[in-house]
């Protein structure tokens, strides 16, 4: 047993085939030896190759997994993970954390489309766990998430939190167009800027204690430096999507 399993990926050929890494998650590697991990199949374009052929693997029998190397074109990083910690040092491609059920996915760079969203054709996205992205993410972040927490320290693309069922999306930067359409009970928390969707209605300006707890947790668990003006400040609450249940919310920072 080691403190951490580190998988260092070789640099992918430019313009070549992409990599699919769904299935390489801490919960699935927890009981595997180093040699068994190296034999796990991953898809590279239309080819299935042993993980050990494209990456160097250090450590074994740990719930803490780290990906190093260029994964900007790797899809499905942390997809379906149920527990443990997956720590990615750089950026990742589309579909990171889709259908995630538990654990903590930490992305040191940016992420592509459909972060924490649903698998194609599925009605539910993320079912639990936490995703923290240091950079920005593409469209449809958190789409159809039923539970779980997604934190993006940069910007998010269009249609963020589309069809959100009950999860939470926190955005430190700017939010793209059409955020939160179809939101049933979920929360969208925006520290940066966003347009209020037409199907959301202003409720009040207040100081939500739950955000004090959330930001305190982000400071402690992820070392995210949330400014005091957000922790103690006033927030505007909008209820929506009123074309759905209307029990979801958009919280935007108003003033210190």
């Amino acid at each position: 047993m080691t403190d951490r399993i580190t998988i260092t990926f070789d640099t992918l050929p430019s313009g070549g085939e992409g990599l699919e890494l769904d299935g390489i998650t801490p919960d699935r590697l927890l009981t595997l030896s180093n040699a068994e991990i190296a034999k796990l199949p991953v898809w590279m374009g239309r080819r299935s190759v042993p993980l050990g052929d494209i990456a160097a693997i250090q450590g074994e029998l740990s719930a803490h997994l780290r990906f190093e190397g260029d994964l900007a074109r790797a899809e499905g990083v942390g997809a379906g993970m149920a527990s443990g910690v997956l720590d990615v040092t750089g950026s990742v491609g589309d579909g990171a954390g889709v259908a995630m059920r538990g654990g903590s996915l930490r992305i040191g760079g940016s992420a592509g489309m459909r972060l924490g969203a649903a698998l194609p054709g599925a009605s539910r996205g993320m079912l639990g766990g936490e995703i923290v992205v240091t950079g920005s993410v593409g469209a449809e972040a958190g789409a159809y998430a039923r539970r779980g927490l997604i934190v993006v320290r940069g910007d998010v693309g269009d249609s963020a939190a589309r069809g959100l069922i009950a999860g939470t999306l926190v955005v430190f930067g700017r939010v793209g167009a059409d955020a939160g359409t179809g939101n049933k009970r979920g929360s969208i928390v925006v520290l940066g800027s966003t347009a209020v969707p037409p199907t959301y209605r202003f409720a009040c300006v207040y100081r939500p204690t739950v955000l004090r707890v959330l930001f305190g947790y982000l400071r402690r668990a992820y070392s995210i430096p949330v400014a005091d003006r957000f922790v103690a400040g006033r927030w505007k609450r909008y209820c929506g999507d009123i074309s759905e249940l209307g029990k979801g919310e958009l919280l935007t920072w108003a003033e210190a």
Binding site: L149, C204, P208, V210, V213, Y217
Partner: peptide, 20 residues
């Protein structure tokens, strides 16, 4: 009411006249 889970701990938000 609604709930939020942070770090495995669930919190309930109960709307009241003051706020929450």
């Amino acid at each position: 009411q609604s709930s939020k889970v942070f770090g495995g701990t669930r919190y309930w938000r109960i709307p009241v006249m003051e706020g929450e």
